[in-house]
């Protein structure tokens, strides 16, 4: 069973609800997430008639380093799905609060680029909990459809720390990382306000990204960069190498403490592109990623709005 929304949920109100479980005892209230246990059925959400706003895409592209094109940056649909993610995780029947969850992995499949003016349906579904050595994981699965056809999919794996499942298998997908000694091709200087800038274009105002004063109470030494910003920035770095149809998986490693100097490295051989974001001084890994082109059968069924024109 899924609920269909006719407008995007208000993120600020959802944050308020998402944060409520942090107040001792609040989880006992029926409209506040919490109580532990399993993720119930019936939390799937669907939002129809979604059209990206050009100004919002432009602002997002600027913060992430993408060229503003007639098609959406590959990570952009995540922005459209984010309010639904928050709505799922702040539902009263959700077993725990969204604040404090760790984004450990994200994979996106783009079957074809989405035109900036195409009308989309966004669907979000949480999976069941899985034991993990450091706690429990679940995934938010997102689909974007245009005219009934799935054109974009994403899986975000979240970790809820706590409970000992030391012998549980790791849930992360295994893909080969770029060797740690692969030479860097770029260095990015990330300003201290990067989290606030990205929050402005994404709506993701998780306190751990906003300021050291709001990050410290949540156990971080300072504000940290958004994982999805890091992924977007990395893909912007190689945007001229990306095929129309591809899958990109990333593992989020150590958080990037802002401000920071980080370096980007990628492989430039074969069909797949392996890439990594590391601390520029210490080499600490922040993100590992892999781009894999989809087989031609997928991209052929992709009529593009506008861009593909033959003479």
């Amino acid at each position: 069973m899924s609920k269909t929304l006719d407008s995007s949920p208000s993120i600020l109100a959802l944050y308020a609800r998402a944060a409520l479980p942090m107040i001792p005892g609040a989880s006992l209230l029926p409209f506040v997430p919490g109580g532990g246990g399993e993720i119930p059925d019936g939390l799937d959400l669907e939002l129809t008639g979604v059209i990206a706003k050009a100004e919002a895409v432009a602002a997002y592209a600027k913060v992430c380093g993408f060229t503003l094109r007639d098609t959406l940056p590959v990570t952009y649909p995540h922005m459209l799905a984010f309010p639904l993610h928050m709505a799922v995780m702040s539902d009263g029947s959700f077993p725990f609060g969204a604040v404090g969850l760790v984004h450990v992995e994200n994979s996106i499949v783009q079957k074809r680029p989405i035109g900036i003016d195409e009308e989309m349906t966004v669907r979000v579904r949480p999976t069941k909990l899985q034991p993990h050595p450091k706690g429990k994981t679940f995934s938010l699965e997102t689909e974007v459809l245009v005219a009934g056809e799935v054109v974009w999919e994403s899986t975000s794996m979240m970790l809820r720390r706590g409970g000992s499942n030391g012998d549980a298998p790791k849930q992360e997908k295994s893909f080969e990382s770029l060797p740690a000694d692969a030479p860097a091709s770029a260095e990015w200087k990330l300003p201290g306000d990067l989290g606030r800038r990205y929050a402005g274009v994404s709506g993701d105002r998780n306190p751990i990204h906003m300021h050291s004063l709001t990050a410290k109470p949540l156990g971080f030494p300072g504000a940290i960069a958004h994982g999805m910003w890091t992924k977007a920035r990395a893909l912007a770095q190689i945007e001229s190498k990306l095929p129309d149809a591809f899958e990109v998986e990333v593992r989020f490693r150590k958080p990037i403490l802002l401000p920071a100097r980080v370096e980007f490295a990628s492989s430039n051989e074969g069909e797949d592109i392996l890439f990594a974001v590391r601390n520029a001084k210490k080499g600490t890994p922040h993100l590992d990623g892999r781009v894999q082109p989809l087989k031609a059968t997928n991209s052929k069924t992709a009529p593009k709005s506008g861009r593909k024109k033959t003479t």
């Binding site: 432009a58 503003l68 094109r69 007639d70 506008g306």
Partner: peptide
């Protein structure tokens, strides 16, 4: 202009 114009952010 069909095969001359590349649409850009909603304009064709």
């Amino acid at each position: 202009f069909e095969d001359l114009m590349t649409p850009y952010i909603g304009l064709d």
